[in-house]
Design a protein around this nucleic acid. Structure first.
Lengths: 129, 129
DNA sequence: GCATTACGACTACGGATGTAAACATGAAGC
DNA sequence: GCTTCATGTTTACATCCGTAGTCGTAATGC
């Protein structure tokens, strides 16, 4: 049955997000493969990754597919959806939903590279149409 | 802006942020005045506000000035510093430090108003100099 | 003066999060 | 068959966060 896709907008935590990044980059992956990707970088043990994977499954953010003994994990939540909602959240919380002040902010903080500026100009031109 | 001695940039939580907003808008305020500003909006009791104020004091985000029997609270952390670091954080975490993808993201999510676009054009023109 | 009140300090408590160990179980080697 | 490894499941535990109640005490009303 076409699941009404009970959109579970469960928040993904910071640590969980690191695991998601690994899966967005390549999937499906086993738990140990995910660990290979992130454990060193974050100083985690395999156990930690296993916990995070379980929590992500519970949050409906990733899917499991049995592969003999173990599971293969792949993202259910798409990266764009995640980054989109997180960005939105920030803009809403900090700038009353307006994006312009956010960029003014970044500009002032010198967080904009020349490339950023160039790309954004192109994008703006697109949007103007 | 920043005083010689850097105080630890403790993270401000979501609820705490609401209190900060009230103080950024007008300060100094007493605890009850802060409550007047936010309690209704968030469904909080005065007790909650008092807790949040204490935590913010502990985090060195606001200052207290005794006014007889009670305190007057004012922000120590400036709004621009907060929004700046939060924005930066998001851009780093989600877009590898590049602002352009964030912009693309917001554009795609139709989170950009015409005003935003207009303002950003002005901004970009400035930056390109 | 004494009760009420206003206020900050301290305490509470459930849920989320970061981090991980213990446990169960099946596979794989020998 | 028994040991060992790999792997998911359960349990653990400290900290933070959201939300608030209680306590001690000074101000204030009468």
């Amino acid at each position: 049955m076409s699941t009404p896709e009970d959109k579970t907008p469960e928040r993904i935590s910071d640590a969980e997000h690191a695991v998601m990044e690994a899966l967005w980059q390549r999937s499906p992956l086993t738990a140990s493969e995910v660990c290979d990707e992130v454990c060193e970088k974050r100083g985690w043990s395999l156990a930690t990754v296993k916990t995070l994977l379980s929590r992500l499954v519970a949050k409906n953010a990733i899917a499991t597919e049995p592969d003999g003994r173990r599971f293969l994990y792949s993202p259910l939540l798409e990266r764009a959806d995640y980054t989109g909602s997180e960005s939105r959240r920030l803009v809403d919380r900090l700038f009353g939903g307006r994006a312009a002040p956010l960029f003014a902010q970044l500009a002032e903080a010198e967080a904009l590279t020349d490339d950023d500026i160039a790309e954004m100009e192109v994008l703006l031109k697109e949007l103007r149409k």
